[in-house]
Amino acid sequence: MADRTGDNGKPPAEELPLLQVKDLKTYFFTRRGIVKAVDGVSLTVRRGEIRGVVGESGCGKSMTAMSILQLVDKPGRIVSGEVWFKGENLLARSRREMTAIRGKQIAVIFQEPKSSLNPVLKVSTQLLEVLKVHQDVGRLPRTEEAVKMLKEVGIPDPERRIHNYPHELSGGMAQRVMIAMGMACAPDLLIADEPTTALDVTIQAQVLDLIRTLRNERGMAVMLITHAMGVVAEMADVVTVMYAGTAVEEAPTLNLFDEPLHPYTRGLIASIPVMGQRKERLEVIPGRVPNLIDMPPGCRFAPRCRARVEHGLEKCTVEEPPMIEARPGHLVRCWLYEGDQR
């Protein structure tokens, strides 16, 4: 891996990424054992870029986001790692300091927009609450600001809508309200956790378009978490593929789809039907995701990996591969590319 970090562990200033997660581990301590939901994830988000994080359910993509915000519920706990945001390690911040960062510098939107809004509070109350908690004391936010916020996310008739309760909104509208809430303090990073999964296709297109537009206008970075390869292909500049609690591949979007390197990524791309590209049969990844309590030794994907068998690799079940820069800017966690390392 190219040495991008300086001596003191801090990245050099000239290409200081907005967010840099290093070897993050978040475990859940349950009665049945330790669930290693996030197990050594590293990823970076640069200013203004859309970073796609893709993976199937249980791969730890959402929990990575929650760990960045330190919103991991019991019995979960961040065990180790570093989360550098604008040159500071967030994991060293106090609870109070994190509260000031959440919603102001890092905003989040979630999968279920309607249940993510408080059912008994009006839209305006929930919108203005962000301003209230993050602005100077003594200055009360005004209703007009809520109207302005809704207007910016393209909600028609905002003067009327601010008086609505969440149950009076459609799913698409609720997600726009969530986005408006996220945008209120002009954050540097928007974490979008499956923002369109619960929405209909035509509404999904609207919301994705809105996120793209806001990114282009304001230059904030977006960490887009999704299970849908299509969403990543359309939105992301760079992609991290996650599997069973760790990142297995990382590349600019075009490179990833042109030449997926990791056998898991290849299987994933081949297994989804793509409109306009008909295949007689879809590829199938045999087996299932390993139990997060009882991870196989070596590479987590090894038990399901055909390439391992084809190439007769034995190392895979013994030692976990590191992230290897197999092509310029294209990292992969797979022993197949051990020789390609630059």
């Binding site: 028609p156 035509t202 297109a205 292909a233 939105m235 979007t253 789809f257 791309i269 793509v274 409109m275």
Partner: peptide, 25 residues
């Protein structure tokens, strides 16, 4: 047509005409 164009396609090189419908059903 709108439905087809709204579907995210897992191919970043696909050139597509994008129709984004306004509003909710």
């Amino acid at each position: 047509r709108a439905l087809m164009s709204a579907i995210p396609v897992a191919d970043p090189r696909a050139k597509r005409e994008r129709i984004i419908l306004q509003g909710d059903p």
